[in-house]
Simulated scan of single mutants.
Amino acid sequence: MTVYCYLDVELKLRDEDKAVVTPAYFLGSIEDSLQSFFGEIGGQTDLELVKFDKNRKRGILRVQDEFLSRTRTAITLIGHFQDIPCHFIVKETSEKKLEF
């Protein structure tokens, strides 16, 4: 049985006009950070973007419970998005773990 958690994540950019924010770039930035900081194992983290709001630069991520801490760490350590200074904020994490 796999247990999943959900993270509400927002992207804050220093210069919002220069960035192309799409679901693929948003998720790719987090996946790149996972691989950069945790190597090959981090790159194998099962991560899914289940909802994305382009205007608010905000998404809901689904991650297995065992990878939650690693994913939050990788998100916190992101400093650039498309060479633009930025930071990601984890607004909320699901406290109720859903089983699938």
Rank of each mutant, 00 (worst) to 15 (best):
S94C: 14
H87D: 00
T93E: 15
V63S: 10
T73W: 00
P85L: 07
I78N: 05
I89L: 08
G42I: 02
D83Q: 13
V50L: 10
L77W: 12
K97D: 13
F38Y: 15
V50M: 09
L77E: 10
I89P: 00
L68D: 05
T93W: 04
E48R: 13
T76Q: 08
H80V: 12
Q64L: 13
R70M: 14
V50E: 12
P85G: 03
R56P: 01
A74M: 01
E99K: 14
R58H: 02
R62K: 15
I84S: 11
T76C: 03
F37S: 00
T73A: 11
G79Y: 09
T71G: 05
E95R: 15
T93P: 03
A74S: 13
G42M: 02
S36Q: 12
K54L: 09
T73I: 11
E95A: 14
R58Y: 05
L47T: 05
A74H: 03
G42D: 04
F88W: 01
L49N: 06
R56C: 01
R58K: 10
R56I: 02
C86I: 01
I89N: 05
L47S: 00
V50N: 01
F88K: 01
T93I: 15
E40T: 07
V63D: 06
L34N: 04
F52P: 03
D65P: 00
E92N: 15
K96A: 13
T71F: 04
R56H: 04
Q44L: 06
I41V: 12
V50T: 12
I84L: 14
L77V: 03
V50F: 08
N55F: 03
D65C: 09
L49S: 07
I84A: 11
Q35H: 08
V63W: 06
Q82A: 11
F37I: 10
R70S: 03
R62N: 05
K51P: 00
Q82N: 10
K51N: 10
Q35W: 04
L34E: 03
G79P: 00
S33L: 07
D83P: 02
R56Q: 09
S33H: 06
S94K: 14
R70F: 02
T71H: 08
